[in-house]
């Protein structure tokens, strides 16, 4: 070293650089296609994820969005938060609506009815709209191979209707329809592995992301949008109201979800798994869970059980990436 000003990217050994690339700060567009002044709650990381996503997507997109928090906060008549074309119709059909838009553009461009251009059709839905009620429409659209990007904003419950459990709610979380009680720990099922279900459709690109890693999120969304064919990005979005966590800790909690191995960041490109972050040692899940009221009731034994499961699942994933 010895130099006064160093170019970090140049000087660090490639291996170390790769490990820290996710934290590299870069200039991004100041243009907001998701306008400020929406009606989201304080500390909502889902809306942060939508904002970053829109920065990455740019102007040449058409967005179809499912019913849910993001739709409600962004589109109340007579206002709109959307600077790009946006359509909401129902809760469970967003992938199908996106299919129709994509097919319509394709036919009209072929016939010369509209100018030929690379407009990306993007479907956005919550975990409920994706993993539960919209799963069939999503599977159909992926299988048919439409050229579209589907983004799941996963806040691990039906937040818009008041924190009811979804199949993406984690084991042990207390929600209004999986409440912890004298004889129940709350949610008694393990979080549905949505990316794995999508991977079974053999689509070209799948990624997980979290707005606590904003550059990684934007990179993945850009990459996914550039794919010809279906792409899927699953974004963990901390919800302070639903998770009963301090609103100023949303970014921190998102980090912890990743650092504990509870929500690993990875990509699946043409079937090949790649971890986005090199974590030599996972933090204890307790560090993540203790900040959230939805886990407050859990016994040490249950937390141990969760810890073990998280470690196992993480190892399986790493094995896939190494294998």
């Amino acid at each position: 070293m010895g130099k006064k000003f160093i170019d970090v990217g140049q000087e660090l050994p490639p291996k170390i650089r790769a490990r820290h690339a996710i934290h590299e700060v870069r200039p991004v567009t100041i243009k907001e296609n998701f306008a400020s002044g929406n009606r989201s709650c304080i500390g909502c990381a889902e809306v942060l994820a939508v904002r970053l996503t829109c920065k990455a997507l740019g102007d040449n997109v058409i967005i179809a969005m499912a019913t849910g928090c993001m739709e409600i906060v962004s589109s109340q008549l007579p206002y709109t938060s959307w600077e790009v074309p946006w359509i909401h119709t129902l809760f469970e059909n967003t992938a199908a609506v996106a299919s129709g838009i994509e097919a319509g553009l394709k036919a009209m461009m072929r016939k010369g009815r509209i100018p030929v251009q690379e407009t990306k059709v993007v479907a956005m839905a919550g975990d409920g709209g994706t993993a539960d009620i919209g799963l069939q429409a999503l599977s159909g659209a992926l299988e048919r191979g439409h050229n579209f990007l589907y983004i799941c904003f996963d806040n691990e419950a039906y937040m818009n209707t008041g924190i009811q459990r979804s199949s993406a709610t984690p084991y042990g979380a207390s929600t209004t329809t999986s409440p912890a009680g004298k004889v129940s720990i709350g949610q008694i099922t393990w979080k549905k592995d949505m990316p794995a279900i999508v991977a079974a459709h053999n689509i070209p690109y799948i990624a997980t992301a979290c707005p606590s890693y904003p550059f990684d999120l934007m990179d993945k969304v850009s990459k996914a949008a550039a794919v010809k064919g279906p792409a899927y990005v699953h974004i963990l979005s901390v919800c302070p109201v639903g998770w009963r966590s301090p609103s100023e800790l949303s970014v921190r909690i998102g980090r912890l979800a990743v650092e504990t191995g509870i929500f690993p960041l990875y990509e699946i490109e043409n079937g090949k798994y790649k971890m986005s972050l090199d974590l030599p040692k996972l933090k204890p899940v307790y560090d993540y869970m203790r900040l959230q009221g939805r886990f407050r009731h859990l016994s040490e034994d249950t937390i141990k059980q969760i810890q073990q499961r998280v470690a196992e699942e993480y190892q399986k994933l790493v094995a896939k990436a190494e294998g």
Partner: peptide, 28 residues
């Protein structure tokens, strides 16, 4: 027939795809 034919997985999706196509300005 120069059309995009979408063999959807349900009628719910058939009509939903029609919504998207029509909103894009396509004859549906």
């Amino acid at each position: 027939l120069d059309a995009e034919y979408i063999p959807v997985e349900s009628e719910h999706s058939a009509m939903s795809a029609c919504l998207g196509a029509a909103a894009a300005g396509a004859r549906t």
